[in-house]
């Protein structure tokens, strides 16, 4: 008994709660016809199967419910899972839709834009700013430098900028919340501004990438013009269009 109170003050906490923001693809259906949704979704996935495989996804029903079109949420979730997507939340759903989602362990995410009640809006304002500044000031985005080749199958994530001094092999993936610089050949996938920073850029000395993406706007290898391949380029976003420019 007597040792316990002595020990507890020195114990390191086993866990900690932090608030953190992520960018997650949001699926906004415009119809409740699941066969049509499946068909068009499959087409999208076929364009970049690796990009979508096991990707988290949020279902946004605001548009549909505005038009009073009711979607069967349970079937929709089942459809997404069948296509190897991982639904992680539902937004803008009606009460019974939220219940149906919850029954499949999919939580309701509050639809911030549509909140009209002032008090809830204030509550949100209060809740969000408080925990946010702390982690951001304590974890300053730092530049990550990689000197070895990034090999097929490896994934590299940088909270700030990412600089790779060697090559990035086909079948690898490099991601950064900031800019990406590759001083070798870029053959793998490069995703800059992965948390939604549209100002992020990708620089590489030899573009042969499988996929390039800035803030979620991506291009696959097949869509890259021959005129930009195999040479030093920079890639940036202009009005949600990826611009690839010679260096």
């Amino acid at each position: 008994m007597s040792t316990e109170p002595q020990h507890t003050p020195y114990q390191k906490p086993a866990l900690e709660f932090k608030s953190s923001t992520f960018s997650v693809p949001v699926l906004i259906p415009y119809t409740n016809d699941l066969t049509v949704i499946e068909h068009q979704l499959q087409q999208k996935i076929n364009q970049a199967p690796e990009f979508f495989r096991n990707s988290p996804i949020l279902i946004d029903l605001q548009e549909l419910n505005k038009q009073s079109i009711s979607l069967n949420v349970a079937e929709c979730i089942e459809l997404l899972r069948r296509l190897a997507l991982l639904p992680i939340g539902i937004r803008g759903g009606l009460h019974d839709q939220n219940e149906a989602a919850l029954a499949l362990n999919i939580p309701k995410i509050s639809a911030q834009q549509n909140i009209s009640h002032q008090d809830t809006a204030q509550k949100l304002e209060k809740i969000i700013p408080e925990p946010e500044p702390e982690p951001e000031t304590s974890e300053q985005p730092s530049t990550r430098i990689v000197t070895n080749p990034v090999r097929s199958g490896q994934r590299i994530y940088a909270h700030g900028d990412l600089i790779v001094l060697s090559q990035v092999s086909a079948g690898s993936e490099i991601m950064a919340e900031g800019n990406i610089h590759v001083y070798g050949t870029l053959r793998g996938r490069a995703l800059a501004g992965i948390q939604g920073n549209t100002e992020a850029r990708i620089f590489c000395s030899d573009l042969q990438a499988e996929l390039i993406s800035i803030a979620g706007n991506y291009k696959i290898s097949e869509d890259l013009d021959e005129s930009v391949r195999n040479k030093p380029v920079q890639i940036y976003l202009n009005d949600l269009a990826l611009i690839i420019q010679d260096l």
Binding site: S152, G153, Q154, S169, A170, G171
Partner: peptide, 13 residues
């Protein structure tokens, strides 16, 4: 070649 590249990644990590 690609499989070797993958193996090199595993060797390094």
């Amino acid at each position: 070649v690609r499989d070797s590249d993958r193996m090199l990644g595993i060797l390094a990590s």
